[in-house]
Design a binder for these strands. Structure first.
Length: 594
RNA sequence: GGCCCGGUAGUUCAGUUGGUUAGAACGCUAGCCUGUCACGCUAGAGGUCGUGGGUUCGAGCCCCAUCCGGGUCGCCA
C-alpha cells in the first residue's frame, strides 16, 4: 500500500525551492522526473507545475530511507521533507541548480506504471499517442506552459473588458437550431419528442437581445460548436471571446478590440503592438494579397497584368482575358538561386490544389532567362510585364491566368504564403495585425442558386450601398470587419441591423419567405419592435489568439483535450454508441444504411 | 467526398534488388558505483513489421482491400 501524507503539508512548490530558503525545512510534492542512483548517493529530480527540485540522499541519510528512494521510478508521486542546502556541485542549466533538499522523510504517495512515452520538456512522439494519453502529455513542461499561458490570456480578457465597462453574461448552450451557416450539432429533446436543440455556433442572437435589454457592453468567454471538418486551426468545439456594444460604430468596436490585444500582448508577452492597426478593404486585400486574411509580414504582392497583356496571343492568357477573367502575377525577389526547376514544378502542382490550371514562371538569372511562357509573348509585352511586376535580375516571377478571379486570387494567395515559408521571409515572434473591412454583404451560393449572407443575416449593409440590396446585391458591402494576424483570421464582427425594415429587406434579399423568417427568427423580429439601440460587436477566436501568441501552428497545442480529424477524442473515444434504452427515451431510431 | 503524407521493439527511427536469426538509440529490468544532474559501467528482457487477402520457393519490402493518424481542397452564415 502507498504511503499517506499524514503529518506532512506541502510548504513549497518545487520551483520555489531556491537559495533564498537555504537552511529552511521544506515539504515538496511532485512526480519523479528522473533518478540518478549512485549507490551511496541517490538524486531524484522532483517535478511539479512550477519546475524541478533535486532531492538528495547520501551517507548521512538513514539507510532505509535511501533504499526507499532507490525504489522510486519515473512518474512515482512523492512527498519529501528536508532541509534546503547548497549543492556540492552546481548545475548552471537549472534555475535552482545551486540547491537541493536533504531529505529526512520520504513518502511514496503513488506508484506509476512506465509511461508509454517519456515525459520530457519537448517531444517528438506522434500526436496520436500524445492525445490518447493526453493526461501524461499535459504533464510536459511545454504543454503546461501552453495551458497556463492560455489561462493568463483569458484572465487578461476578463480584466480588460471588466475595466472598460463590460459585463460578462452567460447565454444558453441548448438553443434553437438556425440552419443558416455552419452545420449545427443537434441534441434531441426527451420531453418533447421529435424536437431538437442545437449547440450554439456563437451566442449571436442572445448578445444582440442583451443590447436590446440595455446591458450595454457585454462580453463572454463562450464555448461554440460547428459540425464541420477540422483543420490545423479549426476544432468543432472552440472558444470565443464574444463582445457586443450599443450606441457604437465600427471604429468604437475596433478600438476596444485593439485595446484588448494590445494589453494582452504587453502583459503576457511584453510585446508592444502599435495601434491603430492598419485597415485594408476587402477588395484591396483580395487584389494585393489574394486573401481576405492576408499575412502582411512580407511583401510579395500580387500585380494585375490583365491590361498589360490584353492583346496577347498567348492562348492561356488570351482565353482567360476574353472570358472576363484576369492574369496576375507575383515576384519572388532574389529567389532565382533558391528555387530550382524541380521546386518550381512542385509549385505548379501546389497551385493546382486551388484549381489553377497552371503556373507560368520566369527565372531571371545573370546567366539568362528561363521561362515557361515568355517565348509566346512579344518583346514589348515581356518588357511591360516585367515593369508592372517590378521584376529584375535574380528574381523569379509567377503568373496565373483564369476565367475566374477567385481562382487566380486563391492560388496566388496560397502561393504567396507558401513561398514566404519556403524562402523564410518571416521571423518568429513578429506580429502584424490588421483589419479587413468592407466585406461583401452577400455571397452567391451556386449550389442553392441564391445569395447567402457572407457574415450573418443581421449584419448591416453600408449606408451608401443600402439601395443595392435589391438592385445589385453582389456589389453591396457590409459594415463588417475581420481582425487578421499573420495570415490567420483572429476574429470578426459587424455593426448589426437595428432597423426592423432593413432587417425585413435583408431576409427578402436572402430569399427567405415571411413564413420562414417568422418561424426561424420570429422572436428576434418581435424583439426589435420594442426599441433596439444601434449596436455592434465582434468575437475573437481564443484558441487562435493563444496559438499565435505562443508561436504554434496547430490549435491542438493550446487546447487541453482537443479532437482529431474525424472529430473524435482519442483519450475517451467520444463520440460513442449509446444504449437502446437511451435511444428509446429520445424517440430515436437508427438507420445506418448507405 | 477528393488529393498528398505516415503506421517496423514501450518511444523515435534504420531496414539495400524480395533471400540466413528484423537492427540502432533512448526507455525498461537486474547488478555495481560517495556529488550526480542527458550520470557512468556490466548484463538482460522486449517485435502477429497497423489489419485482412493475394503474388512468390520465399514478403517488413510487390499488388489489392481496409483501419488508424496528420496536412489540405471542398466545407467553415
Amino acid at each position: 500500500m502507498a504511503d499517506t501524507m499524514t503529518g506532512l503539508k506541502r510548504t513549497n512548490y518545487c520551483g520555489e525551492v531556491t537559495a533564498a530558503l537555504e537552511g529552511k525545512e521544506v515539504v515538496v510534492c511532485g512526480w519523479v522526473q528522473r533518478i540518478r542512483d549512485k549507490g551511496m548517493l541517490v538524486f531524484i529530480d522532483l517535478r511539479d507545475r512550477s519546475g524541478i527540485v533535486q532531492l538528495a540522499f547520501d551517507d548521512t541519510t538513514e539507510e532505509a530511507l535511501r533504499q526507499k528512494a532507490q525504489s522510486a521510478r519515473s512518474e512515482f508521486v512523492l512527498m519529501a521533507k528536508g532541509v534546503v542546502r547548497r549543492r556540492e556541485s552546481i548545475n548552471k542549466d537549472m534555475p535552482n541548480g545551486d540547491v537541493e533538499v536533504a531529505v529526512s522523510d520520504l513518502r511514496i504517495l503513488a506508484k506509476a506504471a512506465t509511461p508509454p512515452f517519456e515525459i520530457t520538456e519537448k517531444t517528438n512522439v506522434k500526436e496520436e499517442l500524445r492525445l490518447k494519453y493526453r493526461y501524461l502529455d499535459l504533464r510536459r513542461k511545454e504543454m503546461q506552459e501552453n495551458i497556463m499561458m492560455r489561462h493568463r490570456i483569458v484572465k487578461e480578457a476578463r480584466d480588460y473588458y471588466d475595466h472598460t465597462g463590460f459585463i460578462e453574461i452567460e447565454t444558453p448552450t441548448l438553443i434553437k437550431s438556425t440552419p443558416e451557416g455552419a452545420r449545427d450539432y443537434l441534441v434531441p429533446s426527451r420531453v418533447q419528442p421529435g424536437h431538437f436543440y442545437a449547440l450554439p455556433q456563437s451566442p449571436q442572437q442572445y448578445k444582440q437581445l442583451l443590447m436590446l435589454s440595455g446591458y450595454d457592453r457585454y462580453m463572454q468567454v463562450a464555448r461554440c460548436y460547428r459540425d464541420e471538418d477540422l483543420r490545423a486551426d479549426r476544432q468543432p468545439e472552440f472558444t470565443q471571446i464574444d463582445v457586443e456594444m450599443s450606441f457604437v460604430d465600427e471604429q468604437d468596436v475596433m478600438g476596444v478590440a485593439e485595446g484588448f490585444l494590445q494589453q494582452a500582448f504587453k502583459n503576457v508577452l511584453n510585446i508592444d503592438l502599435t495601434t491603430p492597426f492598419p485597415i485594408l478593404k476587402y477588395k484591396d486585400a483580395m487584389e494585393q494579397y489574394g486573401s481576405d486574411k492576408p499575412d502582411i509580414r512580407f511583401d510579395l504582392k500580387i500585380h494585375n497584368l490583365t491590361d498589360v497583356l490584353k492583346n496577347t496571343e498567348f492562348k492561356m492568357f488570351a482565353e482567360a482575358i476574353a472570358a472576363g477573367g484576369s492574369v496576375r502575377g507575383i515576384v519572388a525577389k532574389d529567389a532565382a538561386d533558391k528555387l530550382t526547376r524541380k521546386e518550381i514544378d512542385k509549385l505548379g502542382d501546389f497551385v493546382k490544389t486551388y484549381r489553377a490550371k497552371g503556373l507560368a514562371y520566369t527565372r531571371f538569372t545573370a546567366e539568362g532567362v528561363t521561362s515557361s511562357f515568355e517565348k509566346f509573348l512579344s518583346p514589348e509585352e515581356i518588357a511591360a510585364m516585367h515593369t508592372a511586376l517590378g521584376a529584375s535580375t535574380g528574381d523569379v516571377l509567377f503568373v496565373i491566368a483564369d476565367v475566374k478571379d477567385k481562382v487566380v486570387f486563391d492560388s496566388l494567395g496560397a502561393l504567396r504564403n507558401h513561398l514566404a515559408q519556403k524562402l523564410e521571409l518571416t521571423q518568429p515572434g513578429t506580429f502584424a495585425p490588421l483589419w479587413v473591412t468592407e466585406f461583401p454583404l452577400f455571397e452567391y451560393d451556386e449550389e442553392e442558386n441564391r445569395y447567402c449572407a457572407m457574415h450573418h443575416p443581421f449584419t448591416s449593409p453600408m449606408l451608401e450601398d443600402l439601395e443595392m440590396m435589391e438592385t445589385d446585391p453582389a456589389k453591396c458591402r457590409a459594415r463588417a470587419y475581420d481582425i487578421v494576424l499573420n495570415g490567420y483570421e483572429l476574429g470578426g464582427g459587424s455593426i448589426r441591423i437595428n432597423d426592423p425594415e432593413v432587417q425585413q429587406r435583408m431576409f427578402a434579399a436572402l430569399g427567405l419567405s415571411p413564413e420562414t423568417v417568422q418561424e426561424r427568427f420570429g422572436f428576434l423580429i418581435d424583439a426589435f419592435r420594442y426599441g433596439a439601440p444601434p449596436h455592434g460587436g465582434m468575437a475573437f477566436g481564443l484558441d487562435r489568439v493563444v496559438m499565435l501568441m505562443l508561436g504554434k501552428d496547430n490549435i491542438k497545442e493550446v487546447i487541453a483535450f482537443p479532437k482529431v480529424q474525424n472529430a473524435s477524442e482519442l483519450m475517451t473515444g467520444a463520440p460513442g454508441e449509446v444504449d437502446q434504452k437511451n435511444l428509446d427515451e429520445l424517440f430515436l431510431k437508427m438507420d445506418l444504411k448507405n
